[in-house]
Amino acid sequence: MGLPDSSQDLTSEMEVDAFRRIFPLRFFERHLSESLRPDARPLDKARDTIVNLGLVSTADGSALAKIGSTTMLAAIRMEVMTPSTESPDEGCIAVEFHMPPICSPIVRPGRPAEAAPVISKRLSDTILSSGMIDLKELCLVSGKAAWMGYLDIYCLDADGALFDAALLSAVAAFSNLQIPVVALNDNGRIVAISDEKEQDNASIIEEEAVNKEKRKLTLKNIPFSLTCILHKNYILADPTTEEESIMDTLVTVVLDSSDQMVSFYKSGGEALAYSSSIKSCVELARKRAKELKEILGEMDVD
């Protein structure tokens, strides 16, 4: 292949753009050889990350996560269900990941993105297997009633590393989750209690209230993830859509807050991963987990 003559490809702005479109791989490899990416990041650096909590007033918990321009909005709505007989004192979490047509040019109405159900399943597996949430905490009345948490994550802007952003927004939404105050009525149904009503006839409610005050879930073992691209000898952390479309070997490492590995995905692709490169990926993920923990920690203080 060989690198193109530098006097030709850098004569003007316009030609760089054209070169980028016509020979995307060569364009990127040229950058990689200089240990730099087109958006001026070093190879192992993730994009700027922002988390905002509690933006959706109709939900019980919500969060917006932004990694670069990839934007995810997660919201949790709590509903009451009858627990299954196998686990009478456990609640349930249903995770769904949506890619509405607004997020990317490849999604059209009525033709959902192929990636959405895959990410949906991976998120659900990761959140449930990480042990972040103790499902027993969602129990209201053993065998009778438990919380069902509907977690819906909407991708508002897709620019690579969707899974990382989705997981971050999900975790943040759980940290924002306020479990509503409810009581058991005479018919054995769970009813919501508004704050004012509780003050009016506090004595009656005192006996019936199943969940006396708004409470938060205790989150342990919070999972954090990092997606990397493997290309030749290079490892690129936190890829953009453009990078993902050109170099297709993706590795996602999910670590929890005590650096234990929750899951590891390598979804095919051209490059084969040597154990050394996997080790470097995990090392990058560990650094990233620390960063994300700080970002989330700042949120909790507020």
């Binding site: 959706v56 109709t58 939900a59 919201a75 949506h98 509405p100 047509p101 109405p109 819906d152 909407y154």
Partner: peptide, 11 residues
Amino acid sequence: CNVSYTTFASS
């Protein structure tokens, strides 16, 4: 044109 609602758009 296409308009869609999120699952949590309204209570």
